[in-house]
């Protein structure tokens, strides 16, 4: 299965291993426009709206990658991210979208995975999703017409 057939908005904590600009660009090269990567100073900075807007504008799925539980530089950022993701999942479920379009993956303390590992894992996870019914007509990532710079 071509894991690039669905688009993924991947938000990640900048403290996830090997998530610098080089690795980020390598991934974008590897997966092309099917992945869009957003570094966060901490996953706890993520609001449900970020996830929803990603789904609304360009992504079949929006995922968050965080530090391992208990290892957040900001103490509880990833725990908060988890709750916010839960809320976003509930919201999309309420309009009939699959909950799995939004999710959170926390790194493991013992065996830390790199951004590339997560990208691979998540790209293959979302490849099983049907095309997002929200992105109709399908416009791909690079459509300049999509401008809705509304307030957060």
């Amino acid at each position: 299965m071509d894991i690039r057939k669905r688009s993924l908005a991947l938000f990640y904590c900048q403290n996830v291993p090997q998530s610098g600009i080089k690795q980020r660009q390598a991934l974008e090269k590897l997966y092309g426009p099917s992945i869009k990567l957003f570094p966060l100073p901490c996953s706890g900075r993520l609001e449900p709206l970020h996830l929803l807007r990603a789904l609304e504008e360009f992504a079949d799925a929006a995922y968050v990658v965080t530090c391992p539980e208990g290892a957040c530089r900001y103490f509880e950022g990833n725990l908060r991210a988890r709750k916010r993701v839960e809320l976003a999942r509930k919201i999309i479920a309420s309009i009939g979208l699959e909950e799995d379009r939004v999710g959170i993956v926390m790194n493991e303390k013992e065996r830390q995975k790199s951004l590339a590992d997560f990208a691979k894992e998540l790209m293959s996870r979302v490849s099983g999703l049907r095309p997002s019914p929200v992105l109709r007509p399908r416009t791909g990532f690079e459509d300049p017409e999509r401008k809705q710079g509304d307030k957060l």
Partner: peptide, 14 residues
């Protein structure tokens, strides 16, 4: 003034 630019997913708080 905080806002989210969904095209770039940029949160103006940064």
């Amino acid at each position: 003034h905080r806002s989210l630019d969904p095209r770039q997913m940029i949160d103006s708080i940064d």
